[in-house]
Design a binder for these strands. Structure first.
Lengths: 250, 250
DNA sequence: TCTGTACGTCGTACAACGTACAGTGTTCTA
DNA sequence: TAGAACACTGTACGTTGTACGACGTACAGA
Protein backbone atom coordinates (compact mmCIF):
# COMPACT_ATOMS: atom_id res chain seq x y z
CA UNK A 1 0.00 0.00 0.00
CA UNK A 2 2.71 2.42 0.96
CA UNK A 3 5.84 1.98 -1.13
CA UNK A 4 8.89 0.95 0.82
CA UNK A 5 11.62 3.47 1.32
CA UNK A 6 14.51 2.81 -0.98
CA UNK A 7 17.54 1.80 1.03
CA UNK A 8 17.85 3.00 4.58
CA UNK A 9 16.86 6.61 4.43
CA UNK A 10 15.88 8.26 7.68
CA UNK A 11 12.17 7.97 8.25
CA UNK A 12 10.57 11.17 7.09
CA UNK A 13 8.50 13.40 9.33
CA UNK A 14 5.20 12.20 7.98
CA UNK A 15 5.98 8.60 8.82
CA UNK A 16 7.09 9.65 12.26
CA UNK A 17 3.84 11.52 12.74
CA UNK A 18 1.85 8.43 11.79
CA UNK A 19 4.16 6.04 13.60
CA UNK A 20 1.23 4.34 15.37
CA UNK A 21 -0.68 3.67 12.17
CA UNK A 22 -0.62 0.02 11.05
CA UNK A 23 0.68 0.99 7.61
CA UNK A 24 3.55 3.05 8.96
CA UNK A 25 6.95 1.76 7.93
CA UNK A 26 8.70 0.15 10.82
CA UNK A 27 12.42 0.32 11.36
CA UNK A 28 14.43 -2.70 10.27
CA UNK A 29 14.78 -5.53 12.68
CA UNK A 30 18.53 -5.68 12.61
CA UNK A 31 20.87 -4.28 15.18
CA UNK A 32 20.33 -3.89 18.89
CA UNK A 33 16.85 -3.20 20.08
CA UNK A 34 16.16 0.48 20.59
CA UNK A 35 16.27 1.47 24.22
CA UNK A 36 13.75 4.24 23.61
CA UNK A 37 11.20 4.79 20.87
CA UNK A 38 10.25 7.91 18.98
CA UNK A 39 7.14 8.03 21.09
CA UNK A 40 9.22 7.96 24.25
CA UNK A 41 11.31 10.86 23.00
CA UNK A 42 8.24 12.90 22.16
CA UNK A 43 6.58 12.18 25.49
CA UNK A 44 9.69 13.09 27.41
CA UNK A 45 9.99 16.29 25.41
CA UNK A 46 6.39 17.17 26.18
CA UNK A 47 6.96 16.51 29.86
CA UNK A 48 9.98 18.76 29.78
CA UNK A 49 8.05 21.51 28.02
CA UNK A 50 5.13 21.17 30.41
CA UNK A 51 7.30 21.63 33.45
CA UNK A 52 10.02 23.98 32.24
CA UNK A 53 8.91 25.55 29.00
CA UNK A 54 9.93 24.98 25.44
CA UNK A 55 13.32 26.59 25.90
CA UNK A 56 14.20 23.77 28.26
CA UNK A 57 13.59 21.23 25.52
CA UNK A 58 17.15 20.92 24.32
CA UNK A 59 18.54 17.80 22.79
CA UNK A 60 21.01 17.41 25.61
CA UNK A 61 18.50 17.76 28.42
CA UNK A 62 16.14 15.43 26.60
CA UNK A 63 18.85 12.83 26.31
CA UNK A 64 19.64 13.21 30.00
CA UNK A 65 15.99 12.71 30.91
CA UNK A 66 15.88 9.53 28.83
CA UNK A 67 19.24 8.35 30.08
CA UNK A 68 20.79 8.02 26.65
CA UNK A 69 23.57 9.95 25.02
CA UNK A 70 22.89 13.25 23.35
CA UNK A 71 23.28 12.03 19.82
CA UNK A 72 21.04 9.03 20.34
CA UNK A 73 18.10 11.35 20.12
CA UNK A 74 18.78 11.76 16.44
CA UNK A 75 18.16 8.08 15.91
CA UNK A 76 14.51 8.63 16.73
CA UNK A 77 13.93 12.16 15.52
CA UNK A 78 15.49 13.90 12.56
CA UNK A 79 15.96 17.35 14.02
CA UNK A 80 14.74 19.56 16.79
CA UNK A 81 12.33 21.27 14.39
CA UNK A 82 10.79 17.92 13.57
CA UNK A 83 10.55 17.14 17.25
CA UNK A 84 8.51 20.27 17.83
CA UNK A 85 6.04 19.17 15.18
CA UNK A 86 5.74 15.77 16.81
CA UNK A 87 5.18 17.40 20.18
CA UNK A 88 2.42 19.63 18.85
CA UNK A 89 0.68 16.70 17.21
CA UNK A 90 0.98 14.69 20.39
CA UNK A 91 -0.69 17.50 22.30
CA UNK A 92 -3.47 17.75 19.74
CA UNK A 93 -4.05 14.02 19.84
CA UNK A 94 -4.40 14.15 23.60
CA UNK A 95 -7.28 16.61 23.49
CA UNK A 96 -10.68 15.36 24.50
CA UNK A 97 -13.15 14.84 21.66
CA UNK A 98 -16.53 13.99 23.07
CA UNK A 99 -19.25 13.85 20.43
CA UNK A 100 -21.59 16.81 20.29
CA UNK A 101 -24.82 14.84 20.31
CA UNK A 102 -27.85 17.06 19.87
CA UNK A 103 -26.11 20.24 20.95
CA UNK A 104 -26.73 23.41 18.97
CA UNK A 105 -23.91 25.17 17.19
CA UNK A 106 -23.62 27.84 19.89
CA UNK A 107 -22.81 25.41 22.64
CA UNK A 108 -20.57 23.48 20.31
CA UNK A 109 -18.54 26.49 19.35
CA UNK A 110 -18.31 27.54 22.95
CA UNK A 111 -16.97 24.11 23.80
CA UNK A 112 -14.41 24.29 21.03
CA UNK A 113 -13.28 27.68 22.22
CA UNK A 114 -13.02 26.64 25.82
CA UNK A 115 -11.23 23.39 25.18
CA UNK A 116 -8.69 25.20 23.02
CA UNK A 117 -8.25 27.83 25.67
CA UNK A 118 -7.68 25.14 28.28
CA UNK A 119 -5.19 23.44 26.02
CA UNK A 120 -3.20 26.59 25.43
CA UNK A 121 -3.29 27.45 29.10
CA UNK A 122 -1.92 24.10 30.20
CA UNK A 123 0.56 23.86 27.37
CA UNK A 124 1.54 27.44 26.57
CA UNK A 125 4.54 26.21 24.63
CA UNK A 126 2.18 25.34 21.79
CA UNK A 127 2.21 29.03 20.99
CA UNK A 128 5.88 28.80 20.17
CA UNK A 129 5.47 25.99 17.66
CA UNK A 130 4.51 27.53 14.36
CA UNK A 131 5.19 24.95 11.70
CA UNK A 132 2.78 24.29 8.86
CA UNK A 133 3.84 20.67 8.74
CA UNK A 134 1.92 20.09 11.95
CA UNK A 135 -1.20 19.99 9.79
CA UNK A 136 -0.08 16.62 8.45
CA UNK A 137 -0.24 14.80 11.77
CA UNK A 138 -3.01 12.47 12.94
CA UNK A 139 -3.66 14.45 16.10
CA UNK A 140 -3.97 17.73 14.28
CA UNK A 141 -6.22 16.24 11.64
CA UNK A 142 -8.43 14.56 14.22
CA UNK A 143 -8.72 17.87 16.03
CA UNK A 144 -9.60 19.66 12.81
CA UNK A 145 -12.22 17.09 11.95
CA UNK A 146 -13.83 17.26 15.35
CA UNK A 147 -13.93 21.03 15.38
CA UNK A 148 -15.39 21.24 11.92
CA UNK A 149 -18.19 19.02 13.15
CA UNK A 150 -19.12 21.74 15.62
CA UNK A 151 -19.94 24.04 12.75
CA UNK A 152 -22.02 21.61 10.71
CA UNK A 153 -25.38 22.88 12.06
CA UNK A 154 -24.57 26.28 10.60
CA UNK A 155 -24.87 24.81 7.12
CA UNK A 156 -21.99 26.68 5.57
CA UNK A 157 -20.06 25.93 2.42
CA UNK A 158 -16.81 24.06 2.97
CA UNK A 159 -14.69 27.14 2.33
CA UNK A 160 -16.75 29.27 4.69
CA UNK A 161 -16.75 26.51 7.24
CA UNK A 162 -12.96 26.47 7.25
CA UNK A 163 -12.81 30.24 7.45
CA UNK A 164 -15.25 30.29 10.35
CA UNK A 165 -13.25 27.76 12.28
CA UNK A 166 -10.09 29.71 11.64
CA UNK A 167 -11.89 32.78 12.91
CA UNK A 168 -12.83 31.09 16.16
CA UNK A 169 -9.47 29.46 16.76
CA UNK A 170 -7.52 32.60 15.95
CA UNK A 171 -9.51 34.46 18.55
CA UNK A 172 -8.82 31.77 21.12
CA UNK A 173 -5.15 31.67 20.29
CA UNK A 174 -4.72 35.42 20.56
CA UNK A 175 -6.63 35.52 23.83
CA UNK A 176 -4.60 32.71 25.29
CA UNK A 177 -1.44 34.53 24.28
CA UNK A 178 -2.56 37.56 26.25
CA UNK A 179 -3.52 35.42 29.20
CA UNK A 180 -0.09 33.90 29.31
CA UNK A 181 2.07 35.47 31.98
CA UNK A 182 5.17 36.89 30.43
CA UNK A 183 8.30 35.38 31.98
CA UNK A 184 9.56 38.94 32.22
CA UNK A 185 6.55 39.91 34.32
CA UNK A 186 8.67 39.61 37.44
CA UNK A 187 11.14 42.19 36.24
CA UNK A 188 8.27 44.37 35.16
CA UNK A 189 6.68 44.23 38.60
CA UNK A 190 10.01 44.82 40.31
CA UNK A 191 10.75 48.02 38.37
CA UNK A 192 7.19 49.22 38.22
CA UNK A 193 7.26 51.69 41.12
CA UNK A 194 10.22 53.44 39.53
CA UNK A 195 9.03 53.12 35.96
CA UNK A 196 5.50 54.31 36.54
CA UNK A 197 6.64 57.70 37.82
CA UNK A 198 9.03 58.05 34.92
CA UNK A 199 6.36 57.07 32.46
CA UNK A 200 4.00 59.56 34.02
CA UNK A 201 6.57 62.30 33.61
CA UNK A 202 7.19 61.39 30.01
CA UNK A 203 3.53 61.21 29.14
CA UNK A 204 2.52 64.49 30.73
CA UNK A 205 -0.78 65.49 29.18
CA UNK A 206 -0.19 63.71 25.89
CA UNK A 207 -2.30 60.83 24.68
CA UNK A 208 -5.30 61.52 26.89
CA UNK A 209 -7.32 58.71 25.37
CA UNK A 210 -4.62 56.14 25.89
CA UNK A 211 -4.06 57.34 29.43
CA UNK A 212 -7.67 57.28 30.51
CA UNK A 213 -8.57 54.05 28.78
CA UNK A 214 -5.31 52.44 29.74
CA UNK A 215 -5.81 53.41 33.35
CA UNK A 216 -9.38 52.16 33.35
CA UNK A 217 -8.65 48.93 31.56
CA UNK A 218 -5.31 48.24 33.17
CA UNK A 219 -4.90 46.85 36.59
CA UNK A 220 -2.77 48.17 39.40
CA UNK A 221 0.38 46.95 37.75
CA UNK A 222 1.84 47.67 34.37
CA UNK A 223 -0.12 45.24 32.26
CA UNK A 224 -2.30 47.54 30.22
CA UNK A 225 -5.16 45.14 29.58
CA UNK A 226 -7.40 42.91 31.59
CA UNK A 227 -7.40 39.63 29.72
CA UNK A 228 -10.39 37.92 31.24
CA UNK A 229 -12.70 40.75 30.28
CA UNK A 230 -11.24 40.55 26.79
CA UNK A 231 -12.10 36.86 26.70
CA UNK A 232 -15.71 37.31 27.71
CA UNK A 233 -16.14 40.23 25.38
CA UNK A 234 -14.44 38.53 22.49
CA UNK A 235 -16.23 35.23 22.80
CA UNK A 236 -19.57 36.99 22.87
CA UNK A 237 -18.60 38.91 19.72
CA UNK A 238 -17.48 35.74 17.96
CA UNK A 239 -20.76 34.04 18.71
CA UNK A 240 -22.67 37.10 17.60
CA UNK A 241 -20.76 37.17 14.36
CA UNK A 242 -21.46 33.53 13.62
CA UNK A 243 -25.09 33.94 14.54
CA UNK A 244 -25.45 36.37 11.67
CA UNK A 245 -24.53 33.50 9.34
CA UNK A 246 -26.80 30.92 10.86
CA UNK A 247 -30.08 29.85 9.31
CA UNK A 248 -33.00 31.41 11.21
CA UNK A 249 -34.31 28.01 12.43
CA UNK A 250 -31.56 26.65 14.72
CA UNK B 1 11.23 66.68 37.06
CA UNK B 2 12.68 63.25 36.59
CA UNK B 3 15.05 62.36 39.39
CA UNK B 4 18.62 61.81 38.34
CA UNK B 5 19.97 58.30 38.32
CA UNK B 6 22.19 57.71 41.27
CA UNK B 7 25.73 57.10 40.13
CA UNK B 8 26.36 55.63 36.72
CA UNK B 9 23.80 52.90 36.41
CA UNK B 10 23.01 51.69 32.92
CA UNK B 11 20.12 53.62 31.48
CA UNK B 12 16.99 51.58 32.01
CA UNK B 13 14.79 50.41 29.20
CA UNK B 14 12.15 53.02 29.80
CA UNK B 15 14.65 55.83 29.40
CA UNK B 16 15.97 54.22 26.27
CA UNK B 17 12.46 54.00 24.89
CA UNK B 18 11.90 57.68 25.54
CA UNK B 19 15.40 58.70 24.52
CA UNK B 20 14.08 61.43 22.20
CA UNK B 21 11.96 63.04 24.89
CA UNK B 22 13.39 66.33 26.23
CA UNK B 23 13.24 65.06 29.81
CA UNK B 24 15.08 61.85 29.05
CA UNK B 25 18.34 61.51 30.96
CA UNK B 26 21.30 61.98 28.69
CA UNK B 27 24.56 60.13 29.11
CA UNK B 28 27.36 62.00 30.83
CA UNK B 29 29.54 64.19 28.72
CA UNK B 30 32.80 62.62 29.68
CA UNK B 31 34.80 60.15 27.73
CA UNK B 32 35.11 59.80 24.00
CA UNK B 33 32.13 60.76 21.92
CA UNK B 34 29.96 57.78 21.04
CA UNK B 35 30.49 56.67 17.47
CA UNK B 36 26.93 55.43 17.25
CA UNK B 37 23.80 56.24 19.25
CA UNK B 38 21.12 54.00 20.63
CA UNK B 39 18.90 55.19 17.82
CA UNK B 40 21.50 54.14 15.28
CA UNK B 41 21.68 50.70 16.79
CA UNK B 42 17.92 50.30 16.74
CA UNK B 43 17.64 51.52 13.17
CA UNK B 44 20.38 49.22 12.00
CA UNK B 45 18.72 46.32 13.78
CA UNK B 46 15.40 47.12 12.12
CA UNK B 47 17.10 47.27 8.73
CA UNK B 48 18.67 43.91 9.38
CA UNK B 49 15.35 42.41 10.44
CA UNK B 50 13.57 43.90 7.45
CA UNK B 51 15.96 42.37 4.98
CA UNK B 52 16.98 39.13 6.66
CA UNK B 53 14.54 38.38 9.42
CA UNK B 54 14.79 38.61 13.15
CA UNK B 55 17.09 35.63 13.43
CA UNK B 56 19.70 37.65 11.53
CA UNK B 57 19.65 40.30 14.22
CA UNK B 58 22.55 39.03 16.26
CA UNK B 59 24.77 41.26 18.30
CA UNK B 60 27.75 40.39 16.16
CA UNK B 61 26.11 41.05 12.82
CA UNK B 62 24.68 44.26 14.17
CA UNK B 63 28.12 45.37 15.27
CA UNK B 64 29.50 44.51 11.85
CA UNK B 65 26.82 46.54 10.14
CA UNK B 66 27.62 49.52 12.32
CA UNK B 67 31.35 48.99 12.00
CA UNK B 68 32.00 48.77 15.72
CA UNK B 69 33.11 45.88 17.84
CA UNK B 70 30.64 43.33 19.10
CA UNK B 71 30.71 44.42 22.69
CA UNK B 72 30.26 48.08 21.86
CA UNK B 73 26.63 47.35 21.18
CA UNK B 74 26.11 46.84 24.88
CA UNK B 75 27.08 50.43 25.50
CA UNK B 76 23.90 51.56 23.78
CA UNK B 77 21.53 48.74 24.56
CA UNK B 78 21.38 46.63 27.70
CA UNK B 79 20.59 43.27 26.17
CA UNK B 80 19.23 41.71 23.06
CA UNK B 81 15.82 41.40 24.69
CA UNK B 82 15.78 45.12 25.34
CA UNK B 83 16.82 45.75 21.76
CA UNK B 84 13.81 43.83 20.51
CA UNK B 85 11.52 46.05 22.56
CA UNK B 86 13.18 49.14 21.13
CA UNK B 87 12.79 47.77 17.63
CA UNK B 88 9.09 47.09 18.11
CA UNK B 89 8.51 50.54 19.47
CA UNK B 90 10.44 52.05 16.58
CA UNK B 91 8.21 50.19 14.15
CA UNK B 92 5.08 51.34 15.94
CA UNK B 93 6.27 54.91 15.95
CA UNK B 94 6.82 54.77 12.21
CA UNK B 95 3.21 53.86 11.48
CA UNK B 96 1.09 56.43 9.77
CA UNK B 97 -1.50 58.14 11.95
CA UNK B 98 -3.69 60.35 9.83
CA UNK B 99 -6.62 61.83 11.74
CA UNK B 100 -9.97 60.23 11.11
CA UNK B 101 -11.87 63.42 10.41
CA UNK B 102 -15.57 62.82 9.97
CA UNK B 103 -15.26 59.15 9.15
CA UNK B 104 -17.68 56.71 10.72
CA UNK B 105 -16.47 53.95 13.00
CA UNK B 106 -16.76 51.29 10.30
CA UNK B 107 -14.30 52.97 7.99
CA UNK B 108 -12.06 53.83 10.89
CA UNK B 109 -11.89 50.27 12.15
CA UNK B 110 -11.28 49.04 8.63
CA UNK B 111 -8.39 51.47 8.35
CA UNK B 112 -6.95 50.31 11.64
CA UNK B 113 -7.20 46.70 10.55
CA UNK B 114 -5.64 47.33 7.20
CA UNK B 115 -2.79 49.46 8.45
CA UNK B 116 -1.95 46.85 11.04
CA UNK B 117 -2.09 44.16 8.42
CA UNK B 118 0.23 46.16 6.20
CA UNK B 119 2.58 46.71 9.09
CA UNK B 120 2.75 43.03 9.95
CA UNK B 121 3.19 42.08 6.33
CA UNK B 122 6.12 44.42 5.79
CA UNK B 123 7.68 43.69 9.14
CA UNK B 124 6.74 40.09 9.91
CA UNK B 125 9.40 39.96 12.59
CA UNK B 126 7.06 41.93 14.83
CA UNK B 127 5.24 38.66 15.38
CA UNK B 128 8.32 37.28 17.06
CA UNK B 129 8.59 40.10 19.58
CA UNK B 130 6.27 39.31 22.44
CA UNK B 131 7.35 41.45 25.34
CA UNK B 132 4.89 43.26 27.56
CA UNK B 133 7.39 46.03 28.18
CA UNK B 134 6.77 47.25 24.64
CA UNK B 135 3.61 48.84 25.99
CA UNK B 136 5.75 51.42 27.78
CA UNK B 137 7.22 52.94 24.64
CA UNK B 138 6.18 56.19 22.99
CA UNK B 139 5.49 54.57 19.65
CA UNK B 140 3.32 51.87 21.12
CA UNK B 141 1.41 54.35 23.23
CA UNK B 142 0.89 56.69 20.30
CA UNK B 143 -0.39 53.78 18.26
CA UNK B 144 -2.73 52.73 21.05
CA UNK B 145 -4.06 56.25 21.42
CA UNK B 146 -4.69 56.63 17.72
CA UNK B 147 -6.44 53.31 17.44
CA UNK B 148 -8.64 53.97 20.41
CA UNK B 149 -9.77 57.12 18.68
CA UNK B 150 -11.18 54.97 15.91
CA UNK B 151 -13.63 53.44 18.34
CA UNK B 152 -14.83 56.64 19.95
CA UNK B 153 -17.95 56.93 17.75
CA UNK B 154 -19.13 53.62 19.15
CA UNK B 155 -19.60 55.26 22.53
CA UNK B 156 -18.32 52.40 24.63
CA UNK B 157 -17.10 52.39 28.19
CA UNK B 158 -13.33 52.58 28.55
CA UNK B 159 -13.01 48.92 29.49
CA UNK B 160 -15.18 47.81 26.58
CA UNK B 161 -13.31 50.13 24.28
CA UNK B 162 -10.04 48.49 25.18
CA UNK B 163 -11.55 45.02 24.81
CA UNK B 164 -12.98 45.92 21.41
CA UNK B 165 -9.63 47.18 20.17
CA UNK B 166 -7.93 44.05 21.45
CA UNK B 167 -10.54 42.04 19.59
CA UNK B 168 -9.82 43.79 16.32
CA UNK B 169 -6.05 43.72 16.65
CA UNK B 170 -5.97 40.09 17.72
CA UNK B 171 -7.87 39.17 14.61
CA UNK B 172 -5.45 41.12 12.45
CA UNK B 173 -2.45 39.63 14.14
CA UNK B 174 -3.67 36.08 13.75
CA UNK B 175 -4.57 36.64 10.12
CA UNK B 176 -1.21 38.18 9.37
CA UNK B 177 0.44 35.20 10.99
CA UNK B 178 -1.38 32.87 8.65
CA UNK B 179 -0.54 35.03 5.66
CA UNK B 180 3.12 34.84 6.49
CA UNK B 181 4.89 32.29 4.37
CA UNK B 182 6.56 29.73 6.53
CA UNK B 183 10.31 29.57 5.88
CA UNK B 184 9.85 25.81 5.77
CA UNK B 185 7.33 26.12 2.95
CA UNK B 186 10.03 25.24 0.46
CA UNK B 187 10.73 21.93 2.08
CA UNK B 188 7.02 21.31 2.31
CA UNK B 189 6.56 21.92 -1.40
CA UNK B 190 9.57 19.80 -2.26
CA UNK B 191 8.32 16.76 -0.39
CA UNK B 192 4.67 17.27 -1.20
CA UNK B 193 4.35 14.82 -4.11
CA UNK B 194 5.73 12.07 -1.93
CA UNK B 195 3.97 13.11 1.25
CA UNK B 196 0.54 13.59 -0.24
CA UNK B 197 0.31 9.97 -1.37
CA UNK B 198 1.51 8.77 2.01
CA UNK B 199 -0.96 11.00 3.77
CA UNK B 200 -3.73 9.74 1.55
CA UNK B 201 -2.85 6.18 2.44
CA UNK B 202 -2.77 6.94 6.12
CA UNK B 203 -6.06 8.78 6.07
CA UNK B 204 -8.01 6.21 4.10
CA UNK B 205 -11.67 6.87 4.74
CA UNK B 206 -11.17 8.41 8.16
CA UNK B 207 -11.96 12.02 8.99
CA UNK B 208 -14.34 12.60 6.06
CA UNK B 209 -15.17 16.10 7.20
CA UNK B 210 -11.57 17.16 7.48
CA UNK B 211 -10.77 15.61 4.15
CA UNK B 212 -13.58 17.22 2.19
CA UNK B 213 -13.33 20.61 3.83
CA UNK B 214 -9.57 20.53 3.79
CA UNK B 215 -9.56 19.66 0.13
CA UNK B 216 -12.06 22.37 -0.71
CA UNK B 217 -10.44 25.02 1.40
CA UNK B 218 -6.87 24.04 0.67
CA UNK B 219 -5.08 24.89 -2.48
CA UNK B 220 -3.18 22.56 -4.73
CA UNK B 221 -0.32 22.39 -2.29
CA UNK B 222 -0.18 21.31 1.28
CA UNK B 223 -1.29 24.46 3.01
CA UNK B 224 -4.69 23.52 4.33
CA UNK B 225 -6.20 26.99 4.40
CA UNK B 226 -6.65 29.88 2.03
CA UNK B 227 -5.63 32.91 4.02
CA UNK B 228 -7.05 35.71 1.93
CA UNK B 229 -10.53 34.27 2.12
CA UNK B 230 -10.05 34.00 5.84
CA UNK B 231 -9.17 37.69 5.94
CA UNK B 232 -12.23 38.85 4.06
CA UNK B 233 -14.46 36.56 6.04
CA UNK B 234 -12.96 37.49 9.36
CA UNK B 235 -12.95 41.23 8.81
CA UNK B 236 -16.60 41.14 7.83
CA UNK B 237 -17.39 39.16 10.98
CA UNK B 238 -15.44 41.59 13.15
CA UNK B 239 -17.32 44.54 11.74
CA UNK B 240 -20.61 42.73 12.16
CA UNK B 241 -19.80 41.98 15.75
CA UNK B 242 -18.96 45.59 16.52
CA UNK B 243 -22.04 46.82 14.72
CA UNK B 244 -24.13 44.94 17.25
CA UNK B 245 -22.65 47.21 19.91
CA UNK B 246 -23.08 50.47 18.05
CA UNK B 247 -25.80 52.97 18.83
CA UNK B 248 -28.55 52.76 16.20
CA UNK B 249 -27.89 56.29 14.86
CA UNK B 250 -24.37 56.19 13.45
C1' DT C 1 47.22 73.31 34.04
C1' DC C 2 46.97 68.98 36.16
C1' DT C 3 44.49 64.99 37.80
C1' DG C 4 40.81 61.91 38.82
C1' DT C 5 36.90 59.94 37.14
C1' DA C 6 33.33 58.80 34.07
C1' DC C 7 32.72 56.85 29.83
C1' DG C 8 33.22 54.44 25.03
C1' DT C 9 35.50 50.76 22.98
C1' DC C 10 37.51 46.39 22.41
C1' DG C 11 39.52 41.35 22.83
C1' DT C 12 39.11 37.40 25.15
C1' DA C 13 36.53 33.91 27.25
C1' DC C 14 32.65 30.93 28.75
C1' DA C 15 28.65 28.19 28.69
C1' DA C 16 25.05 26.49 25.94
C1' DC C 17 23.04 25.37 21.67
C1' DG C 18 22.08 22.13 17.24
C1' DT C 19 24.19 18.70 14.85
C1' DA C 20 27.91 16.55 11.35
C1' DC C 21 30.93 12.80 11.45
C1' DA C 22 33.35 8.78 12.49
C1' DG C 23 33.51 5.25 14.98
C1' DT C 24 31.85 0.66 18.08
C1' DG C 25 29.28 -3.06 19.03
C1' DT C 26 24.97 -5.77 18.40
C1' DT C 27 21.69 -8.38 15.94
C1' DC C 28 19.33 -10.36 12.07
C1' DT C 29 19.78 -12.11 7.09
C1' DA C 30 21.86 -14.62 3.37
C1' DT D 1 29.62 -17.87 9.15
C1' DA D 2 30.14 -13.41 6.63
C1' DG D 3 28.11 -9.16 5.92
C1' DA D 4 24.83 -5.70 6.14
C1' DA D 5 21.83 -2.90 8.86
C1' DC D 6 21.02 -0.77 12.93
C1' DA D 7 21.34 1.70 17.86
C1' DC D 8 24.34 4.09 20.16
C1' DT D 9 28.33 7.13 21.60
C1' DG D 10 32.26 10.77 21.94
C1' DT D 11 34.36 14.36 19.85
C1' DA D 12 34.27 18.47 17.47
C1' DC D 13 32.64 22.69 14.87
C1' DG D 14 30.29 26.79 14.34
C1' DT D 15 27.08 29.85 16.40
C1' DT D 16 24.79 32.39 20.00
C1' DG D 17 24.43 36.01 24.18
C1' DT D 18 27.18 38.34 27.25
C1' DA D 19 30.48 38.79 31.67
C1' DC D 20 34.88 40.71 32.54
C1' DG D 21 38.90 43.46 32.48
C1' DA D 22 42.05 46.42 29.97
C1' DC D 23 42.78 50.61 27.39
C1' DG D 24 42.27 55.21 25.90
C1' DT D 25 39.60 59.58 25.73
C1' DA D 26 37.47 63.60 27.32
C1' DC D 27 35.54 66.63 30.72
C1' DA D 28 35.19 68.40 35.99
C1' DG D 29 37.13 70.29 39.82
C1' DA D 30 41.59 71.44 42.04
Amino acid sequence: MIPDQEETLPRSLIDLLWRDHPDAPTAGTRGPRARVSTGDVVEAAVRLADTSGLAAVTIRRLADALDVSTMSIYTHVNSRDDLLVLMADFAHLAMERTPYGRLGWRTRVQRVAESNLAQLRTRPWLHDIDDDRTALGPGTIAKYDHELAALVPLGLTPETCDAALTFVLDFVSASARALRTDPRAGEMAAHWPEWSVRLGAYLGDDFPLAQSVGAAAGEAMGAASSPSLAWDFGLARVLDALAALAPPRS
